[in-house]
């Protein structure tokens, strides 16, 4: 599996955060649609949304931390990785992975915001 592969080889580490964001999105929209259409269960839908958001954010923060270490920015404040070496490839993938976890964090929060304000299924 991908987590066994070296980090300079696998693209999975890079796109893991947006993947969590996408799964969170599908889960939130799907569950809300079903709960609202079948049982008008707004409270349960909001609870599910908040719970899955907490899980998604925790996972994304963990992925982001891994990516931050992989980038190893503080070692030389280096954000240019353009040479065809394992080290540069590894740091490049970490750099992109870290930025993507930032975007995914914002995405997950924006997806959740409506549930903070809208308290009914209408």
């Amino acid at each position: 599996m991908f987590w066994r592969q070296p980090r300079d080889r696998s693209l999975w580490h890079m796109i893991l955060a947006p993947t969590i964001w996408a799964l969170h999105f599908v889960l939130v929209y799907g569950v809300t649609a079903v709960l609202c259409a079948k049982w008008d269960a707004a409270d349960l839908a909001r609870l599910t949304i908040f719970a899955s958001t907490a899980v998604a954010l925790t996972l994304i923060v963990a992925v982001g931390r891994g990516a931050w270490r992989q980038w190893d920015y503080l070692d030389g404040w280096d954000d240019i990785h353009d040479r065809p070496t394992d080290n540069h490839r590894r740091r490049f993938l970490g750099h992109v992975g870290f930025l993507l976890s930032l975007v995914s964090t914002i995405g997950v929060i924006y997806v959740t915001l409506p549930a903070v304000f809208v308290e009914t299924c209408r």
């Binding site: 914002i106 929060i109 924006y110 915001l113 409506p114 903070v116 304000f117 809208v118 308290e119 009914t120 209408r122």
Partner: peptide, 20 residues
């Protein structure tokens, strides 16, 4: 833009239940 959009989105969302 992230902060500004969050503020605008929050304002719009907080108004929606009142309009409905």
């Amino acid at each position: 833009p992230t902060v500004l959009l969050a503020v605008l989105l929050s304002y719009g969302l907080s108004e929606m239940p009142r309009q409905l």
